[in-house]
Structures are given as C-alpha cells and as structure tokens.
Design a protein around this nucleic acid. Structure first.
Lengths: 218, 218
DNA sequence: CCTACCGATCGGTAGG
DNA sequence: CCTACCGATCGGTAGG
C-alpha cells in the first residue's frame, strides 16, 4: 500500500508538479482516504521527500553499471551516456521530476545533484582532461560546461520529448522512435564536439543518407 | 497597474509555477486586492494566457533580428543562437516560463512553440541540409534532432543556470559568468557537432593548456 | 479600485 | 485503515 502511494505520488508530482498535486488526488488513485495516507507518510512534504529519496536510490542502484562503463577506455563517454539514457528510458517521470526539482528548489536540487553526480562526473572530467593532454580531445572544450550541457540535454530530451515534433511533426506518433533519435543525436553531438577528429569522419559523401538506422550499433 | 500585475505574475509563474502561485501573492506584490486584479484580468487562467501572450509578443519583436542573423551566410547558425541567447539573457524568467509550459501543458506548448519557431527553424534546417549536400556539414547529422537539442540546451542553460555549479562549485558566485561560459560551450558544441571540420581545429597542440584562463583556473 | 462574502478545497488532526 | 471535523486559503462574485 505504502508503495502504491509512492508510485502515484511520483507520477503526479512529475506530471503536474508538487503544488499542482493534492493528497486527495493521490488517495483517489490508490483508493484510500486522506488520513490513511497520512498514516504512511507524515505530511505532503514528507511524501515529496520519500519520492525524491526513492529516485536517488534507484540511481544509486544503477551507479555500478555507470562506473563500469566509465572505465571502459576509449568509448567511456558514450557508454556512460547510454547507461544514463537507459535510466531515464525506464521511466521518463524521473527526468520530469528532476527538472521540476531544479526549477522549484534550485539550491536544494543543486546540492543533491552534486552528491549524486560527483562519483561518475569527476571520473569523466578527469578522463576528458587527460584526453586533452594526450591530444585526442579538442583543446577548446570547456569540460565542466560541456558536462553540464550534456546532462541538461539528457534530462531535457526525456522530460520534453514532445519538443522534437515541433520541428519535424511528420515523424511517427510513437514518441519512442522520436526519443531514440533524439538520444542518438545527443550522443553524437557530445562525442563529435569532444574529439579532435571523430570516428564518424571517415564516412564518405556517398552514404550521406544515413548509415545508422537506429543508432550506429555496429 | 495592469502592467505591474503582469510583471509580478510573470515572475511568480516562472519561479513557483502556475499552481504554486496564488492570486493573493500577486496582489500583495502590487498592493491591491483580489477583486481589483480580477477587474483587469478575467480569471487566473486569463492572467496566465496574458503572461504567455506577452512572452510570445516579446519574441516576435525580436524575430527580425534573428531572421537577419539567419541570412548572414557561413556564420548563420552561431549568430542565430547568439540572438536567442540575448533574448533569454534579458530575462531568464522567459526560459523558466517556457520550461514550465512544456512540462505542464505538453501538447499546447508544442503547438505554440511550433508556431513561434517555424519561421526561423525552417530557414535553419533548410540551410543545414544544403550544407550537407555541399559537403561542409557532416553527413551524419540528424538535422531536426540536432535543432531540438540546441533549443533544449538554450532553454535549459538559462532556466537551470544553477546546474553548472554542480560540477564546478569553485566558480565565481556571479551566475552571470557561469551562464556566459555555458552559452559559449553550447555554441561551440552546436557548431563543432555540425561542421565537417571546425574552424577551431587549426589550434595547434601547443596551446592545449588553455587559451582562455577563466576556465578551471589551474 | 474597494468591502464583504461565497462554496470548494487545501493539508492535517482527533479519536477510535 | 476509517469517520468526523478543523482552520486556512483557494479562485471568484455581488454590489457599489
């Protein structure tokens, strides 16, 4: 029961925001009365904290795989972002929730994001800076800003998948396909803006139509 | 007076969201009573529409400059994004407002964004696709996805300027400097992920330590 | 632009 | 997990 409340709260907080969600609405979802909800969670604020804590812990569970990817050598960056994309793909509400927290409680969200990102972010930054010295990473990359950009891109892509269709409304209704394309382009942008010469540069002009169909999944 | 209401509403909707803002709070800001506000605007919803309409009209005012930049030849893309950045820099609440609209009313926001972006977005997309044919644009760029990414990046950078400090908390408190770096990196990413060979590539390996020193200031 | 007031709903408590 | 109920606040109206 406590879990059903958490699931409903997560969905509603993500979709309508904290202020836009009433305890009554959550109770209606799970079929109980307000006092029953307040037996499981001390207050609305307490419920919000539980929702965030659950999100953080889901991420912590994921961390080992991300860290493993980060140590994978040359393809480190791409593998890390693929792991991150998988995390959001599992439940896009996670991205929306993060986005809401960032705009609703900027300083608190910054701190929490810092704690949660620190382990893998510092690894990545270190790795990129080494790449700069050894020459295969562009010298003009602002590493911290680059990483922040890619995180914004990841969260933004999943939180606002609807945006894509602004430009290409002719794409299939299935937003799954849309998100896939969007993520692929995020990875491509991240990579090609980082490396001095991109692997994809050995593409000839003959295959301009597109070699990769889903992703480059070679 | 009507204007003071609009200004307060814009700020509060941007910062705390529509549901998180009470008419009373706006009235307190401008020093009137609720019925007076409802004389100027028919309802809370009506006020929200006015806020959005004002944002759209501010953008329309800007449009000519953006279109002019889009026709500037080789530097088209960069100039367009510099114009867009200027628009958000004038008032970051604009970015927050857009972001809120996108998560709160996805389909409505998508439609409105489509209308507002169409004129310059189609110019840009066309121009990039031509660049592909003539060979100076990478063949593997997913043009529509790329544009969506850059828009997300622009809005996200101004809406969540606080994010940057997650990675580099040692940076100056002045978020102005932070945003500047962030925008610069957005432009760099956008450009270098687009062109087959970037202008910045003529950097030699000798200035790898960093041309700019505002960076992580070793 | 105001006073006075409305029904509805908010988060939360008492008490079992 | 419930019924019953709380004060506070919500958006909005009547009437001037």
């Amino acid at each position: 029961m406590k879990d059903k409340i958490l699931v409903s709260a997560t969905r509603r907080f993500a979709r309508h925001g904290y202020a836009g969600t009433s305890l009554q609405a959550i109770c209606d979802d799970v079929g109980i009365r307000k006092p029953s909800l307040l037996y499981h969670y001390p207050s609305k604020e307490g419920l919000r904290e539980a929702v965030i804590a659950h999100l953080v812990s889901a991420w912590q569970t994921r961390l080992p795989q991300v860290l493993a990817a980060a140590n994978g050598g040359a393809r480190s960056f791409e593998d890390v972002f693929i792991e991150v994309a998988e995390f959001f793909h599992e439940d896009p509400n996670r991205a929306r929730l993060i986005l809401r927290e960032v705009v609703d409680h900027p300083q608190q969200a910054r701190q929490r994001l810092g704690e949660v990102m620190a382990p893998w972010a510092s690894l990545l930054v270190e790795s990129i800076k080494n790449g700069k010295k050894s020459g295969h990473i562009r010298a003009d990359v602002d590493v911290e800003a680059w990483l922040a950009d890619v995180v914004v891109l990841m969260v933004g892509t999943f939180a606002a998948a609807e945006l894509t269709s602004v430009v290409s409304p002719n794409m299939g209704e299935g937003s799954d396909e849309r998100v896939r394309r969007q993520v692929a382009e995020v990875v491509r942008m991240a990579r090609s803006s980082l490396y001095r010469s991109t692997h994809a540069d050995n593409e000839t002009e003959s295959d301009q139509k597109r070699t990769r169909n889903t992703e480059e999944s070679t």
